[in-house]
Amino acid sequence: MSEKQAAEVVVLPREEEEEANEPVQKNQFDLNSYDTDSTEIDLTHTRADHIPDLSRFPNIEELRMRNNLLTVFSPTLSSLVSLTSLDLYENQLTEIENLDGLVNLVTLDLSYNRIRKISGLDKLEKLEVLYLVNNKIEKIENLDALTQLKLLELGDNRIKKIENINHLINLEELFLGKNKIRQIEGISSLQKLKVLSIPGNRIVKIENVEELTNLKELYLSDQGLQDIHGVENLTNLTLLDVANNEIKTFNGVEKLDALNDFWANDNKVESFNEIELLSKLKDLQTVYLERNPFYFHDVNQYRRKVMLTLTQVTQIDATMCRKATT
């Protein structure tokens, strides 16, 4: 053994070595601890490798099996007709199946699994909340039956296009962050939408949002936006996040009369005069503006200058400030 190889050898203490060689203890739960009339069963972090037979709990409404070792949806799930909430966050599931009997399901969380395709949801007509964060999904599809959906979370997948959701007219919150989306599209009919979150994608232009007049929060940070044009009609917007883009001017933001929060740090705005546009927004309370070029022009006076220009704000970047007196 060479000196380099010897240096790479890690010697475990006897106790740790024995523990490392022990087989994984699975299914560390006891259903006998639950009454048969229980409405909620929580088997989180019990190292479960299967969904047990829960037929003796006829009133169960909520089932949580987060942080386990599940690889498949047990056929026994379909018998849980009374179930309204199913949480299988962080397991090893690869395919959505055996959910047809859950006709009363309202909330479904399948985040942090290994699911490659949206499927098996056709019978869940009462579903209002669907989480599919951090899977391997490449396409938005097979949501035709979910017309009651109010929240759809598909962040951190492999999605390239916003499609097949125009029929979700009851949708209020849509999350598509950290995908590969290049264009905002296919959402014009979502008139009830209040939150649209698409950070960390490949969008270079704000477009096709002018009809979303009920929108209150818009998140578009960490991509390639050049300006803020396209938001002028969103008069109910209270939060706009365009941080870490390529924006060179704040033109357009002054028309958002209801704006409370404006996050535009880490952009390319050169002139401090751009901040004067924000002085017209009487309800503005929080601004994030640091690390734009104007910030580096006079770092020591930056905060003071913002306070004098935007007397209505109560927070500048991560620091609270005393509201100016009249």
Rank of each mutant, 00 (worst) to 15 (best):
S2H: 03
S2A: 06
S2F: 02
S2R: 07
S2L: 04
K4H: 01
Q5G: 00
E16H: 05
E17I: 02
E19Q: 05
E19T: 00
A20F: 03
A20S: 09
Q25A: 14
D30E: 14
S33F: 03
S33I: 03
T39P: 00
T39Q: 14
T46N: 06
T46E: 13
R47Y: 08
D49M: 07
D53Q: 05
L54K: 07
F57Y: 11
N59V: 07
I60N: 01
R64K: 13
R66Q: 12
L69G: 01
V72H: 10
S74I: 02
P75S: 11
L83I: 02
T84N: 11
L86W: 06
E95Q: 14
I96Y: 00
L99D: 12
L105H: 07
S111V: 08
S111N: 06
I115T: 07
L124P: 00
N135Y: 09
I137G: 01
E138K: 15
I140N: 06
L143S: 12
D144C: 05
L146N: 14
T147Q: 15
T147M: 13
K150E: 11
R158P: 00
K161T: 08
N170K: 13
E172M: 05
L174Y: 09
G186W: 01
I187H: 04
L190A: 13
K192N: 10
K194I: 12
V195S: 02
E211C: 03
E211Q: 08
L212H: 03
T213W: 03
L215V: 09
Y219A: 07
D222V: 07
D222A: 14
Q223F: 04
G224M: 01
L225E: 14
D227I: 00
D227F: 01
H229S: 14
E232D: 11
N233D: 04
T235S: 12
L239E: 13
D241M: 09
V242W: 02
A243D: 13
T249M: 10
N251F: 03
G252E: 11
V253H: 10
V253Y: 14
E254R: 04
L256A: 13
N260Q: 10
F262Q: 12
F262P: 08
D266T: 14
L278P: 00
Q285Y: 06
V287Q: 06
L289W: 04
P293K: 12
P293H: 08
F294M: 13
H297R: 15
D298H: 12
V299I: 06
M307L: 12
L310E: 02
Q315R: 15
I316T: 12
M320D: 09
C321A: 05
